[in-house]
Design a protein around this nucleic acid. Structure first.
Length: 913
DNA sequence: GTCGATACGTAC
DNA sequence: GACGTACGTATCGACG
């Protein structure tokens, strides 16, 4: 049957450019993108389509620019290295005999759309080869999409599955979502999920617009704000299918290739594999080994296009000793080993090793299964034997290793008896340091962003939800495809990201001198865990439970009926509808809030609000802490092992989860009691060391404000000193209220708070709050100048940075939305202080750990809570520890103010404060 | 049963 | 809308 293949040349050129390492030809000219495209074309031709066209954008404006002058205004200019590859690409396309189309005034998309519909009307099946999701709107019987980079084929069912809408709804979906790359703003906060939901409900864009008044919440407001531009969006994203063309589908027969011209071109650009095939007289792409990935075209198993793009590479599944030894040889010779482990659990403290993968060159990776277990599983190498064989490499500090979130793999291997040394690079942390604004740093996201590559998802091999199977039950074939890709992609990501970091010495230093050395330190803290008195917590749970029940019964009594105290909605209905109490606070969606502030405000008018507050406080402690922590005790170690997320907070802070040990209560009596359950074992003590007012000290340092610096140098209570300065009083005459106000200002400023917030915080009028702030700035003019400088820098550079050079990108600093922009400005104010504090304590941790490592088992670092480090130490070692930790924490940075460290010792965490 | 959004509250 | 950074629990409605 005849068939038309339409190739979206621009899309592949861009993707290949970003996906492949910056290769160069024999003469040094850039060839990376060219290489990818050529391999893709050779694979396509091997399928011998009857009709084909390579479509690229012509230069000059199109009808879309006339419709919307800002169209694609965000696009950075084409990199020179890419521009240089266009002419060679077109020459190769010509030599291969593929018809080339460039039509001025429209985009390549429109040419493809028109040809696709023409062919379909003549009964010619059409395959559109592209990496651009917008083409999903053209899918219908007879028109299919294929992405040779990811090997995915998309028909109508595929569109429905991927986008959740029918192909004819895709333009509506795209109009709602907008397209940041093309500078077409959609509905704010409306992604594919929300857009698909609306379209499912209202059928079309017009239906959604008509129903805009009924859509609740902030997203509804965003929709209403965007109504005006949606029709234009739709016209912009709609691919034209009625362009006047000189050629019809039947004019697009491939010509015979020009062997002499190809030989010359391949030779010039150093495409040796292609040249070999050409000289061997093979059809394009033949003679290569079968890749493990899905096929590029038509669903049958295609051959790998040389070292190319369509398939991820040559992946080997190792099940015999000889093969492993051959790979060991490669690992020993490699300058850097990309590695990854596969296990049966996400919990690194429980996970059992199922397999390991390695890569040393992009596109070449192996998977060593050691724990697959399903009926009919082929023979695998013995786990112990494999680990013994790998041990010399993995434990050698002089053989650098690379991973993606390698802390996890370090844990797994340690628990299987291998102490990894020389863990030198981590692509997750490279990405985090390179761009800590907003996005996630998981491999799938990074592969998409930096390589333009869609990885095989875990769900694709192991399923999800109830149907998920452990990785040990995944077939060796699927596992090898997935796992080897992980190592391969990690290596490719590292090549891209390390290059970027190399051009920014300060960022490189954050990565090299702070983040990477911290990895094994965190791993040790997590592995050690903290001892928790589960019995004590159970007793507290019982006590809390009794008091909750009493509060609940009393609340139901007063209400005159039973209701769910845990349901804000039911509570709101009772308080504000039935009892007619005033609703003084609104939630972000506009509903009356029942939060603490709202209830406090009406607590003098009715008994119920106070009881609800009582109940809430008790329920929080029990549900979140006293009930849960005992469940988190690891049966093997008898301790609780949190995980620290090193790329979690955009400012550079760590975060803690499973369980979160960075938000254990301290402010209330009942809450603090939970800390008594964090204990030291017999013969040991808990030791807590925290930085005193570190962020305010950093504000003094960064602003250089004389008054603030003096206040810290005096060594006085900083809030009292601030109050004395602001109110023009001697220290001893500062009243409690004045100190409270000064404290609120000190903290509020660091968070970018305005008069409105301060007034609310202090329960005073807005005018009075504004006066306080003005007074503060008049006494500390350096602080105001600093804040102005930071906002300025954020606007000019799009990022702010810490003392050590860590950057936070602030995408929304130029948002058209005033609230978003204001939010970004507040983040800009806060990030240098919060981030510098994070840098400092991270440096301190590395330093303290290095010292602890020299002292065997006398003490262990257990926890980090942003400005505090918690240790467990032999009782007779406590004094030594205190002196050294103080010294190293205080010495972790040289600022214009001293860093002061407060310490405490006790039998439990509460006493250590 | 699972998932995502919303509300709330804990820490620094 | 109004104070920065996190994580966890409960409810509730949608979905299969």
């Amino acid at each position: 049957m005849s068939r038309l293949v339409l190739i979206d040349g621009s899309s592949y050129l861009y993707r290949a450019f970003h996906a492949l390492p910056p290769l160069t030809g024999p003469d040094g000219s850039p060839t990376g993108a060219l290489f990818g495209v050529v391999n893709m074309l050779r694979a396509t031709l091997k399928e011998q389509p009857d009709y084909a066209a390579f479509v690229v954008d012509a230069s000059g404006p199109t009808f879309r620019d006339e419709m919307y002058p800002a169209y694609k205004a965000n696009r950075p200019p084409m990199p020179d290295d890419l521009r240089a590859q266009i002419e060679p690409m077109l020459a190769i396309v010509q030599a291969l005999g593929i018809p080339l189309l460039r039509v001025p005034g429209v985009e390549a998309d429109d040419v493809i759309g028109t040809l696709a519909l023409q062919a379909r009307s003549k009964g010619i099946p059409v395959l559109i080869s592209t990496g651009d999701k917008d083409f999903a709107q053209l899918v219908r019987p007879g028109i299919t999409l294929v992405n040779t980079m990811t090997g995915t084929v998309m028909d109508e069912a595929g569109v429905q599955e991927k986008f959740g809408v029918r192909p004819d709804q895709v333009v509506d979906l795209l109009a709602l979502m907008g397209d940041t790359v093309d500078n077409v703003p959609g509905v704010d906060k409306c992604g594919p999920k929300t857009a698909a939901k609306w379209l499912a409900e209202y059928g079309s864009l017009e239906g959604v617009m008509a129903a805009a008044g009924d859509i609740k919440g902030k997203i509804g407001e965003n929709l209403r704000a965007a109504l005006d531009r949606l029709p234009l969006n739709k016209r912009l994203v709609t691919i034209k299918t009625d362009v006047e063309l000189e050629q019809g589908p039947e004019d697009l027969r491939p010509r015979p290739r020009d062997v002499a011209a190809l030989r010359e071109l391949y030779r010039r650009y150093g495409f040796n594999a292609a040249l070999r095939d050409l000289e061997a007289g093979n059809g394009e792409g033949s003679g290569r080994r079968t890749p493990p990935g899905p096929s590029a075209l038509a669903g049958e198993t295609a051959e790998a296009p040389a070292e190319g793009l369509a398939a991820p590479g040559a992946y080997e599944c190792i099940t015999d000793r000889k093969a492993l030894e051959a790979w060991l040889e490669r690992l020993r010779d490699a300058p850097l080993i990309a590695m990854d482990t596969e296990t049966d659990s996400l919990d690194p403290m429980r996970a059992r090793l199922v397999g390991l993968s390695f890569a040393v060159e992009p596109g070449e990776a192996c998977y060593v299964p050691v724990g697959h277990d399903y009926p009919g599983v082929p023979a695998q190498l013995d786990r112990e034997w494999v680990l013994e064989a790998l041990r010399p490499v993995l434990e050698d500090p002089d053989r650098p290793k690379l991973g993606q979130h390698g802390k996890y793999d370090l844990h797994v291997l340690r628990r299987h008896g291998v102490q990894v040394r020389g863990y030198a690079e981590d692509s997750m942390l490279e990405s985090f340091v390179w761009n800590a604004g907003g996005q996630r740093h998981d491999m799938d996201t990074l592969a998409q962003k930096y390589l333009g590559y869609q990885t095989v998802k875990y769900e694709q091999v192991a399923g999800k939800g109830a149907k998920q199977i452990p990785f040990s039950a995944v077939s060796l074939e699927d596992a090898a495809r997935y796992a080897a890709e992980d190592a391969d992609i990690t290596l490719r990501l590292h090549r891209v990201l390390s290059e970027k970091l190399a051009g920014e010495p300060r960022l490189m230093s954050v990565y090299r001198d702070i983040e990477m050395p911290l990895v094994p330190v965190l791993a040790r803290m997590e592995a050690k865990g903290v001892l928790v008195d589960a019995e004590e917590l159970r007793r507290q749970s019982e006590d809390l439970g009794r008091r909750m029940l009493a509060a609940q019964q009393r609340a139901h009594e007063i209400a005159g009926r039973a209701f769910n105290l845990d349901s804000p909605r039911q509570l709101g209905a009772l308080l504000f509808d039935e009892l007619k109490l005033p609703a003084l606070v609104k939630t972000p969606t506009g509903a009356p809030s029942t939060n603490e502030e709202a209830l406090e405000a009406i607590a003098d008018q009715h008994e119920l609000p106070r009881l609800v507050l009582e109940y809430r406080g008790l329920a929080k402690l029990r549900n979140t802490y006293t009930d849960k922590l005992p469940e988190m005790v690891n049966p093997d170690t008898g301790r609780v092992h949190t995980s620290y997320h090193q790329a979690g907070a955009a400012t550079g802070r760590l975060s803690s989860n499973d369980p979160n040990l960075q938000n254990i209560p301290i402010r209330t009596e009942d809450g603090r009691r939970i800390r008594t359950a964090f204990i030291a074992p017999p013969g040991r003590k808990m030791v807590a060391c925290d930085y005193s007012q570190i962020e305010l000290r950093i504000m003094a340092h960064l602003s250089g404000d004389e008054g603030l610096l003096r206040a810290f140098e005096s060594g006085q209570d900083i809030h009292r000193a601030t109050a004395a300065e602001v109110f023009g009083l001697p220290l001893e005459e500062v009243s409690a209220d004045q100190r409270r106000a000064a404290k609120a200002i000190n903290f509020g400023l660091m968070y970018g708070m305005g008069a409105w917030g301060l007034a609310r915080q202090l329960g005073i009028g807005r005018g009075e709050a504004q006066d306080y702030i003005a007074l503060y700035f008049s006494r500390y003019p350096g602080v105001r100048d600093y804040m102005d400088r930071v906002r300025q820098q954020a606007r000019e550079l799009g990022y702010v940075e810490t003392v050590f050079g860590r950057r936070l990108q602030l995408q929304e600093i130029h948002s058209r939305n005033a609230a978003q922009r204001a939010g970004a400005e507040r983040a800009a104010i806060n990030a240098p202080m919060q981030g510098t504090a994070a840098d400092i304590i991270k440096r301190a941790m590395v330093s303290v750990d290095a010292w602890l490592q020299q002292h065997g088992d006398r003490a262990d670092m257990l926890l980090q809570v942003h400005d505090e480090l918690v240790f467990e130490a032999d009782a007779d070692f406590v004094d030594t520890l205190l002196a050294e930790v103080r010294r190293r924490m205080a010495g972790a940075a040289e600022l214009r103010v001293p860093l002061v460290v407060d310490v405490g010792v006790g039998a439990n965490w509460d006493e250590a404060h």
